[in-house]
Design a protein around this nucleic acid. Structure first.
Length: 491
RNA sequence: CGGGGUGUAGCGCAGUUGGCUAGCGCGCCACGUUCGGGACGUGGAGGCCGGAAGUUCGAGUCUUCUCACCCCGACCA
């Protein structure tokens, strides 16, 4: 393993790949396009899961689990949905192997062909709505608020660790409601949960908005999203929430009896975030020394490194360190005391910076004498000497200050790289050369959007929800526009 | 699926017009000296040179076929 990361300025994409590998988050597997998520990467994902899961439960949702296989026929029941996913499906056609004729391996047993092929889920709307038909009969059964943590498969051509893999982990919420209004409210509620999570846990600012028709989820009437800006000036869609109308209820014949005794189709939503959030987290904050993790999602928040020459020194330091570990753990922090003698302090400093531990405490003989420790924070790399007596206070301050600081830093970066453009050449300049978000007027047509995408590779990331509405003229066609929309090149 | 590229030690690579025992750096193991920002010395282990067939006295090197992976496009959370 090389010691250094490729600097971001030299090759951003290489920096990202290097970091994922060297920080031991994930690696490519023997299966093309699929990744192995390594323990440290998975530990971060578990933190993400735990926080989101609690937010889902707090908003009234329950977890359930549906099969990974979906009968092919289910897919053809909702026309636009099948069209959206048909090109990237993995299909199970057989259920048995047999020894090959030359005796050296195994081959597919052609006698074991399935009557109906099974699709490995690219998303679970169809199988879930097939079940909901039996679960929902009366208005009393509604709303039905279910979430599933699962893996899904989308046969992508080009993959990148966490950002786009053929198999990925995610959660998918699937809710059913008696009224359109209630379903729409749910769609908004969940995109706001995602936005809160991004801001408060990932320390990542996001723009909340609505997708254009071109970018909408296959089978949805409306798709809401959160969009984040990465350090290379590209946008990353980090979460989506869909209002599905009655499309799936009609496709799977899910009706309920109203209070008045009428039969009506139920209204649906679905919403999800994936292991792509790991990519967002990495690209939002990390630097040329490695990962920078927000304290709320760091698997280990504090590492203690002893500095010593002799065994007796280590013993004395360890006595002190053990006390610190106990007191900080008592306060609820996750702490690692790394007293391995197989690595030197300098190596450990670099190692834990690469891994993004938010705070490092170093203790040497000098500190024992003075009743101090050295504290280094990962976000700024600043070091200071802290008296033992105020250590707990200092840690408490650092945890919230680092969390806040990296959010502010990311927010400032986004502000500095967000531009209001009024002409097509300005738009091109921003998205093609400078990078970043460009707010521009758009005439609202798919044709214009597609042309701009073709010519600049930039897409409308969203029609922002909480922005000032202002009339103008489309930068491309010159036709009237009701409001500015958010353009950027995206992952 | 188009266009380009690469397969040699765990990782990154070198290997000349074909030449004898296939090298280098990092990592790994042992011992010693070190230890407040990625230590150093000495010794050591580790290879069907992607696979198959061919040319040749001799193939990592040449020929043919094959397999795999990577990069750039079209597609996407």
């Amino acid at each position: 393993m090389a010691k250094e990361l490729t600097p971001r300025s030299e090759n951003y994409s290489e920096w990202y790949n290097d970091l994922v590998i060297k920080a031991d988050l994930a690696e490519n597997s023997a299966v093309r396009g699929c990744m192995v998520i390594k323990p440290y990467g998975y530990a971060i994902w578990e933190k993400i899961q735990a926080a989101l899961d609690k937010m889902f439960k707090d908003t009234g949702h329950s977890n359930a689990y549906f099969p990974i296989f979906i009968p092919k026929s289910f897919f053809s029941k909702e026309a636009s949905h099948v069209e959206g996913f048909a090109k990237e499906c993995a299909i199970v056609t057989h259920y048995r192997l047999k020894a090959s004729l030359d005796g050296k391996g195994v081959v597919v047993d052609e006698d074991a062909k399935l009557e109906e092929e099974l699709i490995i889920r690219p998303t679970s709307e169809t199988i879930i709505w097939d079940s909901y038909r039996n679960w929902i009969h009366s208005y009393r059964d509604l709303p039905l608020l279910i979430n599933q943590w699962a893996n899904v498969v989308r046969w992508e051509m080009r993959t990148r660790l966490f950002l786009r893999t053929a198999e990925f982990l995610w959660q998918e919420g699937h809710t059913a409601h008696a009224t359109k209004e209630e379903a729409i409210e749910e769609t908004f509620k969940m995109i706001n949960v995602y936005a809160d999570f991004a801001r408060n846990w990932m320390a990542m600012p996001v723009i909340t908005g609505r997708k254009t028709e071109n970018e909408r989820f296959a089978g949805a009437l409306d798709t809401l999203c959160i969009e984040a800006l990465m350090q290379d000036g590209k946008a990353l869609q980090s979460g989506t929430s869909h209002f599905l109308g009655q499309n799936f209820a009609k496709a799977f014949d899910v009706k309920f009896t109203t209070k008045e005794g009428a039969q009506e189709y139920v209204w649906a939503t679905s919403w999800g975030v994936s292991t792509r959030l790991m990519g967002a987290l990495i690209m939002a904050h990390s630097d040329d020394n490695g990962l920078v993790l927000p304290p709320k999602l760091a698997p280990t928040q504090i590492v203690i490194v002893p500095i010593y020459k002799k065994e007796e020194e280590l013993a004395a330091i360890s006595e002190q360190a053990d006390k610190i570990v106990a007191s900080l753990r008592g306060k609820g922090y996750s702490v690692l005391y790394d007293k391995r003698d197989t690595h030197k302090p300098g190596w450990k400093f670099a190692h834990y910076e690469l891994k993004g531990f938010p705070v490092r405490i170093a203790i040497g003989p000098r500190d024992l004498e003075n009743g101090t420790v050295e504290i280094a924070r990962r976000d700024t790399l600043a070091k200071e000497i802290c008296p033992m007596t105020s250590l707990e206070k200092k840690i408490e301050f650092l945890m919230s200050d680092i969390q806040n600081n990296i959010y502010q830093k990311a927010l400032k970066f986004r502000k500095d790289n967000t531009h209001f453009v009024n002409t097509y050449s300005e738009l091109r300049h921003i998205v093609e050369e400078k990078g970043g978000f460009a707010y521009a007027h758009w005439d609202g047509t798919s044709e214009t959007e597609s042309k701009i995408k073709e010519e600049t590779k930039a897409t409308i990331r969203c029609i922002p929800m909480d922005d000032i509405v202002e009339k103008g003229k489309c930068v491309y066609s010159g036709k009237p526009s009701e409001r500015r929309v958010l353009f950027a090149r995206a992952y």
